Simulated assay, not measured.
Amino acid sequence: MGTYFCGGGSYLHQGNVHYVLSILERASHQQKLYPTTFLPHGIAFDPVNKNRLITTEKKGPGAVAITVSDAEASAQTFQAMPGHHFYGHCVFVQEGERLLTVESELATTEGAIAIRDSLSLDVIGLFPSFGDKPHDCVLTDDGKTLVVSNAGSKEKGSEGAISFIDISTQTLVKQIKVPSPLVNAGHIALGGNGDIALVSAPNDALTEDQEGGVSLGRNDRLTFVSDHLVAGTALEGETLSVVISDKYQLAITCTPRANRLCFWSLPTQSLIKAMKIDGPRGVALADEETALVTYGANSAWVEIDLASLQLKSKTYFSPTYITGSHLYEMPSA
């Protein structure tokens, strides 16, 4: 069995935009495309059925469960709660018995975590995200704690923050504020040593051509490390995707508008290298020694050696059809 990666994308055909979930095998580049009605953003993999995944829309009503197979795939669509939109991400909990979806109330921007039956996908419970405009969600403490990024709302005067929520009691354990008032709280990566990497867009009172950036920390403290210039170029716009290499103590981040793939030292909270690459969007660890990045107008991917931080020869492939925000390794069956 090979190693498969997937992500959402869109392409133009005969004047119409088509949305897909794209799945590729790393070595052979064998590829399958599964049509969707929206641009897939976050993806959660069913721990009970390795062939089943859930993907939700970023700031929209759409979501779908897809069961992939060598034969015909099946799709089960479902909707955000009434008066809400999905805000990008979801995660399975309780050994796959429940699915948590990150949603935002349209009238108030207050964040909500919907508890859904993992098979029917019906809402059976609800608890707050303890912030406005929530987006990313990851698990920690052996799946007992949900970590949610709340972008914040300038209209309401709320700042971005990361909420740590006890799933069993649905209570706030702690909250870490975003260290710069100029950015929101976007995507999160957690390391094995308690490291936290947060990537951000300019807050919603600013324009997209302003700087987003990167915050690094450990446990209860975050430091905004991308204050102004990175290798002579500002991290203009949203810093989109992030992954942590525990072996090399690195955070790897993508800033597509600035055409920068950046490598940050977690121990020193400093920039190691800013690689110029056309519109990097998704990044994932292929193994302990290698990262994969999706980028560019041709929806390409390429591998990066983490020891040298150099592109690996003969690993370029295009088109992946992965033009969305993330790249995920699929669990082995």
Rank of each mutant, 00 (worst) to 15 (best):
G7L: 11
L121H: 12
Q210W: 05
L24D: 08
E155Y: 03
N150D: 12
Y248Q: 14
I304F: 15
C90N: 03
G42D: 02
F38D: 01
K247Y: 11
L292Q: 06
A205N: 08
K50F: 11
A307K: 15
M330Y: 13
T140K: 07
D220S: 14
I54C: 09
G96T: 02
I188Y: 06
T169N: 13
G131F: 09
D117C: 04
S265I: 02
F45Y: 10
Q175A: 05
N49F: 01
T315H: 13
D136L: 14
E236M: 14
L198N: 06
D305A: 15
P331M: 11
Y316I: 05
M1H: 03
M275W: 03
D166P: 09
H13A: 13
N298F: 12
Y11C: 04
L235D: 00
D141L: 15
N259D: 15
S163P: 05
G279M: 15
F92M: 01
L100K: 00
G237P: 00
L139F: 06
L39W: 00
G194M: 09
I244R: 03
F78A: 12
C262A: 11
N51W: 13
Q14V: 08
F86R: 03
L285A: 10
I124H: 07
D141E: 15
L126R: 01
D220Q: 14
E289G: 07
I162R: 06
H89N: 15
E329I: 09
G125K: 00
R98T: 04
T268F: 09
S245H: 05
N51I: 09
I115W: 02
T255Q: 07
L229S: 12
F78W: 13
H187M: 07
G194Q: 10
E105P: 02
I196V: 14
I244G: 05
T55K: 01
T239C: 06
L121S: 10
G192C: 08
Y11I: 08
A151H: 01
T223W: 03
D209L: 07
D166N: 15
K156C: 02
A44S: 13
G2Q: 11
P40Y: 07
T3Y: 14
G9W: 02
A274T: 04
W301N: 08
I124V: 02
K156Q: 00
E288P: 10
V302K: 13
V148C: 15
A297N: 10
F127L: 09
K314S: 15
S332L: 12
G160P: 06
G125I: 01
Y87M: 03
S200T: 05
T233S: 11
G7W: 04
V138C: 05
D209I: 08
A291W: 06
E159W: 01
S69Q: 14
A27L: 13
R98L: 12
S299N: 15
P61G: 11
Q79V: 12
H228A: 12
C262N: 04
H85P: 02
A251L: 08
P319W: 07
S10Y: 10
E110G: 03
N51L: 14
F164L: 15
L309W: 10
Q14C: 09
F263A: 10
R257W: 05
S318M: 15
T268Y: 10
H89W: 11
V173F: 13
V183I: 13
A234W: 03
R260V: 00
N150F: 10
S153A: 01
A284V: 14
Q94C: 04
D305I: 08
E95M: 06
T169W: 00
F263P: 00
A80F: 07
T207Q: 12
P128K: 03
